[in-house]
Deep mutational scan, measured.
Amino acid sequence: QVALSRTQVCGILREELFQGDAFHQSDTHIFIIMGASGDLAKKKIYPTIWWLFRDGLLPENTFIVGYARSRLTVADIRKQSEPFFKATPEEKLKLEDFFARNSYVAGQYDDAASYQRLNSHMNALHLGSQANRLFYLALPPTVYEAVTKNIHESCMSQIGWNRIIVEKPFGRDLQSSDRLSNHISSLFREDQIYRIDHYLGKEMVQNLMVLRFANRIFGPIWNRDNIACVILTFKEPFGTEGRGGYFDEFGIIRDVMQNHLLQMLCLVAMEKPASTNSDDVRDEKVKVLKCISEVQANNVVLGQYVGNPDGEGEATKGYLDDPTVPRGSTTATFAAVVLYVENERWDGVPFILRCGKALNERKAEVRLQFHDVAGDIFHQQCKRNELVIRVQPNEAVYTKMMTKKPGMFFNPEESELDLTYGNRYKNVKLPDAYERLILDVFCGSQMHFVRSDELREAWRIFTPLLHQIELEKPKPIPYIYGSRGPTEADELMKRVGFQYEGTYKWVNPHKL
């Protein structure tokens, strides 16, 4: 086992960053958080920038500027975001240094004079007029057009580079997404736009490419001749908990499936790229999406959770019991969808996408189930092999396979070949997804960000279904809070070829 401390991990990262040409360590950078008073800024962006600063992973002359409508001070920003920093008493001095680099400007999102004030403020910072500028839009999409237009007109660096990070949702359907994309691309070049999907920053999602293309053993079996089906799962054990009003506007397909799960599907299904260059990788992902037809209604199961009468606390409440959810809402909190990649490698292999709230566990994984062994000599005792990439929690890679049961006879039983990170790298604290992705933006690497043509294809696949749901308002199937979801989803999976045995229990190697 390799035991690495946080300091050692960050030392390795620093070495990698400083050796590259793309990370300008000594240049002045300004990180501007648009929507600095909001939840995302408070819980994710400010803490992430602090962790990067604490670990010495930001360029040395980096300033952080918050911008929002609320009249706040840096002290206010500190008060609301610091509880999420997880700072230790030993880091007190470092924390003071961090907040000394912070400033805040209040202004409207659609007022040109406010942006001119913001620009004057940035120019007044040390070497601010020639600094590289990175704008993070932690804002609702309704203000994107006004904000990007004003940034472009008043706040661009004339000497350094300018980059803009856009948070999902990128529209509600193909038409609104196209409108937003066309607007942003009329102001910024594609190499300046970073559409963030934080799932692409997760260690195991990034590991998929290495697993596939750096190991000879997987190449020959990664196709329709050997793989019976692919299941991509995202499960949350909690409901909307008072935030249903926002969720109800989008629903589970827009929230998770059309982005996170579809991105994971691309990494499983794509061909080997010409290189690890950002556009070479994204070219292959677009090719996969172009091979997927629009979702067919007979390959869809929609569910909505109801309270568990035997549960406790939140578990007793259904989705419609959330006071922020519109009365009688038919918005799905669970969806199972089957897609097919219609190309030579994957023809006929079902890709089953499942996601839901208020389920029995927290889990995100990719599961490849292989065909049955031909010419069975073990009297149907063999179960199908599976390769599982567990994204969260407890990152893991393992192969479910058959071995001989101890004893006199040739009785096979299920076991696993474990390729888990935790076994080799004991207690290594890896940077989280937002840390990686923000560092990628500083480096100018777009590999783990969504390109406009990729986004367009993703919406093309799901828009007809979303429009049909909005028009017909089908009643989702009720499922109990804390269950596996509607049984109809299991029946759909069985119908397209997935075999669920229920006889195997994964042993978490992190707890051995």
Rank of each mutant, 00 (worst) to 15 (best):
D255S: 13
D255L: 07
V256K: 08
V256W: 14
V256I: 15
Q258M: 15
H260S: 15
L261C: 08
L262F: 05
Q263N: 15
Q263C: 09
M264W: 15
M264L: 15
L265M: 13
L265V: 09
L265I: 08
M270Y: 00
E271Q: 04
S275H: 03
S275M: 07
S275A: 06
T276K: 09
N277M: 05
N277R: 05
N277H: 11
S278I: 04
S278Q: 10
S278G: 13
D279A: 13
D280G: 04
R282V: 04
D283H: 04
E284V: 15
K285P: 02
V286H: 06
V286W: 06
K287M: 05
K287F: 03
V288H: 02
K290F: 02
C291F: 12
I292E: 01
S293V: 05
V295H: 03
L302F: 11
G303V: 02
Y305P: 02
V306W: 04
G307L: 04
N308H: 09
D310M: 06
G311E: 10
E314M: 10
E314G: 10
A315N: 10
T316S: 13
T316G: 08
K317C: 10
K317G: 14
G318N: 07
G318F: 01
G318S: 06
G318A: 06
Y319V: 01
Y319F: 09
Y319D: 00
D321H: 05
D321I: 04
P323C: 08
P323S: 09
T324V: 07
R327Q: 09
S329N: 03
T330V: 10
T333H: 01
A335H: 02
A336K: 03
A336P: 01
V337Y: 01
V338L: 07
E344Y: 11
R345P: 01
D347Y: 08
V349N: 01
K357F: 07
K357R: 15
A358V: 00
L359W: 00
L359C: 14
L359E: 01
E361W: 03
E361K: 14
R362Q: 07
E365S: 11
R367Y: 05
L368D: 01
L368A: 04
D372V: 06
V373H: 12
A374R: 11
A374L: 09
A374I: 09
D376Y: 04
I377C: 08
F378H: 01
Q381E: 14
Q381F: 09
C382L: 13
N385I: 02
N385W: 13
N385Y: 02
E386W: 01
E386L: 02
L387W: 04
L387M: 04
V388S: 09
I389C: 07
R390E: 14
V391F: 14
V391Y: 14
Q392F: 09
Q392W: 09
Q392A: 09
N394T: 10
N394S: 04
E395F: 13
E395W: 13
A396P: 10
A396I: 14
V397N: 04
Y398W: 08
T399E: 06
K400P: 05
M401E: 05
M402E: 05
T403Y: 15
T403P: 04
P406Q: 15
P406I: 14
G407D: 11
M408V: 13
F410R: 08
P412K: 05
E413F: 08
E413V: 11
E413P: 04
E414F: 13
L417P: 04
L417I: 13
D418C: 03
L419V: 15
L419G: 03
T420Q: 09
T420Y: 14
Y421L: 12
Y421A: 13
K426M: 12
N427E: 13
N427I: 10
V428Q: 11
V428W: 09
P431M: 14
P431T: 09
P431A: 04
A433H: 14
Y434A: 14
E435W: 05
E435Q: 11
I438F: 09
L439W: 07
D440G: 04
V441P: 07
F442V: 15
G444V: 00
G444D: 06
Q446T: 05
H448Q: 11
H448G: 15
F449C: 07
F449Y: 05
V450A: 13
S452T: 12
D453N: 07
R456H: 13
R456D: 06
R460P: 00
T463N: 15
P464F: 04
L466N: 13
L466F: 12
H467G: 10
Q468P: 04
Q468I: 06
I469M: 14
E470T: 12
L471A: 06
L471H: 10
K475E: 09
K475L: 14
I477G: 05
Y479W: 02
I480Q: 11
I480W: 10
I480C: 13
Y481N: 14
G482P: 00
R484V: 10
R484C: 14
R484I: 08
G485T: 00
P486T: 03
T487L: 13
T487Y: 10
E488M: 08
A489W: 05
A489R: 01
D490G: 09
D490L: 10
E491C: 08
L492S: 01
L492G: 01
L492H: 03
M493K: 13
K494W: 11
G497I: 13
G497K: 14
G497E: 14
Q499E: 11
E501N: 11
E501M: 06
T503G: 11
Y504S: 15
Y504Q: 15
W506R: 14
W506M: 14
V507S: 09
N508D: 10
N508F: 14
N508Q: 12
P509L: 10
H510N: 11
